[in-house]
Amino acid sequence: MIIKIEQPSDNAHAVISVKKLSAEIGFDSVQQSLIATAVSELSTNIIRYAEKGSIQIRHIQSGLKDGIQIVAEDEGPGIKNITRALTSQYSTGNSLGLGLSSVKRIMDEFEIETEPGSGTRISVRKWIQT
């Protein structure tokens, strides 16, 4: 499922969709909230830095494992300093951080492709722990 992120209200759509899908896949309620929070952070970043983009969510399987994959894509300004963007920092108040370190901590796998001027693609996966 692809959700267009073009205005702040699209964030709610993304959060509700990912909660529903993660519940269907079999994540418990705590994991559902964590995954939804990660999506909310990614979607907020799109609105804040790139103005528009998309979030794709889907059920994935590997062997006997079930999981969820989220791909956040935009054609915004890109991230100049990835190392800095991934550095853990307080995100309270007028956050300057991208919250990416948090997304990385919440999810099991994290990949980022970005280039200044040509956008950002962040792909994350989380697996059900058996």
Binding site: V30, L34, Y90, S102
Partner: peptide, 15 residues
């Protein structure tokens, strides 16, 4: 705070 929110706030490095 619900458990999922509490976990997320810790993971988000919130104050």
């Amino acid at each position: 705070f619900q458990p999922g929110v509490a976990s997320a706030l810790v993971d988000l490095d919130s104050d």
